[in-house]
Amino acid sequence: MATINKKLSLGQSLFSEEIRISYKGPVDGKIITYLGDYIGVVNTLSEKATKKLFKIFFELAENISKYSSEKIKLKNGKEVGAGTIILKETVKNFILVTGNPIKNEHLIPVLENSKNINELDHSELREYKRSVRRENKDENHSPNIGLITVALTSGNPLDLEINPIDEKTSYFSISVKVDK
C-alpha cells in the first residue's frame, strides 16, 4: 500500500500550503452547498478544473455525511456524519483533504478498493466503476463508487491515511489533487 505509506500529515501541511477554506463539524446539505458555492467563485481555477473540483468535493463530502462514524443530530432531527474538509492551494494545484472517523467494517472494502484504484489506468478505472456499480445495484451510492469517481475525475492517485482510533474505528483521511 504505497499510497497509504506516503503519509500526509494534516497538522504539518496546514502550515506549508495556503488554506482557502476549512471546516470541521457536521456535514449537512447546507454546509455542502455553501462550500460548493465557495469553490465556484475561486478565481484562480480554470473552468474545467472548477468542475473537477466540484465533482470531487461532492463525492467526498457525501462520504463524510454518510459514512463518518461520528453522527450528529441536527435541528430537523436528522443525523449526519461529521468530519473535516480542507481546500488548499499550491502554485500548481488545488488539494482537497477530507477526514472522518469510520467504522473498520466500512474501511476494509475502501482500502482494498483504493489499492486497486491507484493501480488502474483511466480506461481500466471506468471498467472497474461499471463493474462495482453492477455489483451494488441496491445502493445508489457507496463509498467505493465515490472513490472511483474521485480518482477518475482527479486524474491523480488518491492519497490515503488511516490511523486506528480504537478496535472498531479508525480515522480515515484522503487527499486529492486537482491540477489548475
Binding site: 494534516l10 497538522g11 476549512s22 471546516y23 470541521k24 463539524g25 465557495y38 473535516t84
Partner: peptide
Amino acid sequence: MSATKSVFTRLTGKNIVMSYTGPF
C-alpha cells in the same frame, strides 16, 4: 491570504467539535 489560514494548525484536533476558516 496565506497569513490567516496558516496560523491555526489544530483544526482537526480531537476535542474540536466545530471549526471553520474562510470568509465570514
